[in-house]
Every structure is written in C-alpha cells, then in structure tokens.
Computed example of a mutant assay.
Amino acid sequence: MIVVAGEALVDMVPVGDDELTPLAPKLGGGPYNVAVALGRLDVPTAFLSRVSTDHFGEQLIKRLHASRVATVLVQRGQENTTLAVVGLADDGSARYSFYVDGTADRLVEDPGPLPAEAKAVSFGTLSLVLEPGASVYETVLRRESKRLLVALDPNIRAGLIDDPGAYRKRFRSWLPDVGLLKLSVEDARWLAEDGDVQGGDVIEIARTWISQGPAAVVLTKGGDGLSVITATGQVDVPPVKVDVVDTIGAGDTVQGALLAWLHDHDALSVEKVRALTSDEWTDALTYAGAAAAITCSRAGAEPPFASELTAALGG
C-alpha cells in the first residue's frame, strides 16, 4: 500500500474566456490528486489528511472512494474546505490564489505509525508550508523514512511562503529522508535561488540534491518532457503530444504514475529505486508522461484510469 499525505481542496476553475468568467468547483489539491491517480491506476492507496464535513468535504471523500482510495487515515472536522481560485494562461498553465485561513487540512493530527502494509508515503504542496499541519507532516516524513520509501513533490506555491529562505533551508533538511524527489524545473530553480547552484542549471541542481540523500530526482519540463537524474547518470524522455485543455494536476499525475510504476515493478524502496537501469527509467518516465498527457487533455485534475492509460500506451 502507498499512503499519500497532504491537503484536499477545491479548485475554482474558469469555464469561459471572459475577464470575469464563471468559476466551476473542481476537487483537487496536490496530494489529493496523487492519491486519486494511484487509486485509478489500481494501486492500493490510503489518503492521510483532515477533510471538512462541509459539502465540499463530503464530495472530496466521495471521489476518493470512487477512485478506490482508502480513507481510514482521513480525519474529519467542521472547519471549511480550502479554496484555490485558478487562472489559466493562453497555454493552459495555471496560477493560483488560495483561501486557507482556518481550513480543515491545516489542522491534521499525527496519526502515529503508518499501517504495517504501507511500502511508501508521498508528501507535498501546501501541506508542507501551512502550519500547524506542516510540522505534523514533517514529523511523519522523518519517522516513516526509517522504514518506507518517502516520495516528495514540493510543488511550490510561492505566494503562500512568507519566508522563502527558511523554507529552502527546511526543504534541504528533508533531503536525507527522501528517496524519490519529483519537481518541475521552475520549482527546482526557485528552491536553489539562495545559491545552491549558480545560473539555474537544473541538472546541476538535481545532482547537488542527489548527493544529499534522494536516490533519484525526476524533473518535469513541460513541453520538453521528463528527466531523471541519479548518482549514475541521466535519462530523458520526450513529451507526449496532446491538445492541452489545461495543466491542472499534470505534475500530480506524474507523481502518482511514477509511484504506480514502482509499485507494479516491485521497486518501492530506496535501494530498488537506486538500482533501476536506464531502460527501466525510460519505461517509468514514459508511463508517467502518458498519464500526465491524458490529464492535460481534459479540464481540471482528472487522472486516467488504468484502462485509459493502457490504451494510450498501446497495450
């Protein structure tokens, strides 16, 4: 089983082209999308979070169940659901404004040791920024890294980070406990801005981080595809051509699909990730890229089901 820890929220997504177009609610949140992607790819998955008992919260839970994600680790509270208002650029890329004061997901409590059947745990996005929940998730990350593969997607939302320098320092402190680090090239450059690497060379940035702990760093590069950097080299795969509706949830789908591939190939450990060959990484990145392309082809964060991805890959 894979546990995904972090926030669930509602994206308010524009449904027209007018300056003040109507907004439609779409269920999301980085970790939530990862959990949905994993469940839809037939991987035993549990979600760890605190979810509101309001209408949005009920719909979030309902969608987890429909995606075959277990909710035994989900805590419930009467606080409101976090809202993210989404703006879309001409290329379909998204920008976000958040409404997070006093919302349910910030008040998660430490569940204690994760279930014995868990093999990996994934973290990321707002849940590692907004206190008091961020410190709770950090505690779980450090504790569970002693026995599980820890996957991290920082998924930076700079507008919510009051002290970038402190966050970058905190990020680096997690690296010894992280087995798989996945992030966009933009996030890599933002995280290295305080001088880790001069000039913003993302490959050199990734190599620096590899030396601090992770077995692999996977970079999402938008229209340039995906890359993985390990201690032994680099593997690149081209993008999948698709008519982009929007990119909401694309990176989350990559994270979920990568973990699904590792699960399906019995590689959910730091040692096994470190031992993957170039051909295996090509297979894994191709799988993740195809999954993300399907998500980009439809509105909102809608990761594919296993049958859809199999068909896309010609299986």
Rank of each mutant, 00 (worst) to 15 (best):
L180W: 02
V217G: 02
L181C: 00
R147T: 10
A120E: 03
G102Q: 13
V202A: 09
V218L: 03
V217M: 03
D201G: 08
E204M: 07
I210A: 05
A158P: 08
G199R: 12
Q198L: 13
I161T: 03
R172S: 10
I156P: 13
I203S: 13
A215T: 05
V202L: 07
Y167R: 03
K182Q: 07
S184E: 11
D163T: 15
E117Q: 09
V108K: 01
R147Y: 08
A158C: 07
L152S: 00
V121P: 05
V129M: 04
Y96E: 03
G165D: 14
G112F: 10
T208M: 13
V108E: 05
P132H: 00
D201T: 08
L128A: 04
I156H: 03
A118Q: 00
V150G: 05
G165I: 09
L114Y: 04
V121A: 10
G102N: 13
N155G: 08
P176S: 12
V217A: 02
F123H: 04
L181E: 00
L180V: 12
F98I: 07
I156C: 00
T139W: 07
T125K: 06
V100W: 10
S184C: 09
D201C: 12
G159C: 09
E204G: 11
D196H: 07
V178R: 05
T103R: 06
E117P: 02
S97T: 14
L148Y: 05
V202D: 10
S135K: 12
S122A: 14
L107H: 12
D110N: 14
V202Q: 04
I156S: 08
D101N: 14
R168I: 06
W174I: 08
V185Q: 15
R172P: 07
L180H: 02
L175D: 06
